[in-house]
């Protein structure tokens, strides 16, 4: 019995860095979705926004990685952040200004992003793939000296991980402790009441959708810099997995953190189960479909008491009561 527990603990420590690397892009993208949906705009275009971020990041990094190897990655992440926000304007314009169907617009975002970036990348590289030198893992000074915990959590980490965790805290603060957050949540629950109280629903929703694009773009670039190392016109479905994490996390920052970890670990275990004897008995298919199945189960279980923003998916029409 003890053997197995120690063995599992050992494996967890072993795969922890990989699971984290996978969890972080998922987490930041889901956080982006959180802002959009809490303001009342459904964003199933997260996957496409990640692709845009990955593309912007790959271009920037491959341009600057020779001349300034240290800062190129950060420039790339910043470019992805901006590019994602700008591309999300398309979604905001369709959903907020034109009251278009948010699902169709989101699908269009996904398709445009995938096709357009591959088209442009092919014009530049021929193959349509852009290779970059990825981010390096670093030890956190001082903290990595802590026995056991320090070795698991603070050695060989990506700096982007800490940035994303900081953004998570900041997001929670922004949503729950500031005027902007209160207004944003009001727009997602009852836009007419928010409007009556003097909140500019359109402006808030624009900002929220742009934030979702910025975060998803960042997620795409982090995935590029830490996991894939190459832009190839897709985000491997992480955008949709982020959507699942958002729902499974019941539209709350802490819930999303938990869901992202859960899904990140499940995916990582599925990826490495071939080499780790203890997991080789679990069929990978169960682990890979697990996030989507549990999200369906969560949807059913919470169907009576769902925490989904009440106005998500509905265009805001001033004249409607």
């Amino acid at each position: 019995m003890w053997d197995i527990i120690i063995q599992i603990a050992g494996i967890i420590v072993q795969i922890f860095p990989y699971a984290i690397a996978y969890t972080i892009p998922l987490l930041i993208t889901a956080l982006g979705g959180l802002f959009s949906e809490r303001s009342g705009v459904v964003n199933i275009g997260l996957e496409g926004l990640m692709v845009i971020g990955g593309f912007a990041g790959a271009l920037t990094i491959s341009t600057f990685q020779r001349s300034m190897p240290g800062t190129a990655i950060w420039l790339g992440l910043f470019a992805a952040f901006v590019a994602g926000a700008l591309f999300a304007l398309l979604h905001a314009f369709a959903c907020v200004t034109l009251n278009a169907n948010q699902v169709i617009s989101g699908i269009a975002i996904n398709m445009v992003a995938g096709a357009l970036t591959t088209f442009l990348a092919r014009n530049m590289t021929g193959s349509g793939n852009v290779r970059i030198r990825g981010m390096l893992r670093q030890d956190v000074p001082v903290l990595s000296e802590i026995p056991i915990l320090g070795k698991t959590l603070f050695t060989q980490t990506y700096a982007s991980t800490w940035v994303v965790l900081a953004i998570l805290l900041l997001s929670a603060f922004l949503l729950y402790k500031t005027k902007f957050g209160l207004r944003l949540r009001a727009c997602g629950e009852h836009p007419h009441a928010a409007d009556a109280a003097g909140v500019n629903v359109y402006l808030i929703r624009y900002l929220a959708v742009m934030l979702s694009g910025a975060f998803a773009g960042l997620g795409g670039a982090i995935f590029l810099a830490t996991v894939s190392g190459e832009f190839s016109g897709s985000a491997g479905g992480i955008g949709f997995l982020a959507l699942a994490a958002l729902i499974f996390g019941q539209w709350k920052p802490i819930g999303i953190l938990g869901a992202a970890f859960f899904f990140g670990f499940a995916t990582t275990i599925a990826n490495v189960s071939q080499v780790i004897p203890l997991f080789s008995n679990i069929p990978s298919i169960l682990l890979k479909t697990f996030p989507f199945v549990v999200t369906l189960v969560a949807l059913v279980l919470f169907s009576k008491s769902s925490q989904a923003p009440r106005a998500a998916g509905e265009p805001y029409d001033k004249g409607k009561r």
Partner: peptide
């Protein structure tokens, strides 16, 4: 020509976006 084949996918995707925003 030198035009990458993804132009067709881009056109289709753009058509969806314009169909979604036909209100404009």
């Amino acid at each position: 020509t030198n035009i990458p084949p993804e132009i067709a996918d881009t056109i289709i995707a753009t058509i969806i976006y314009f169909a979604a925003t036909s209100v404009l």
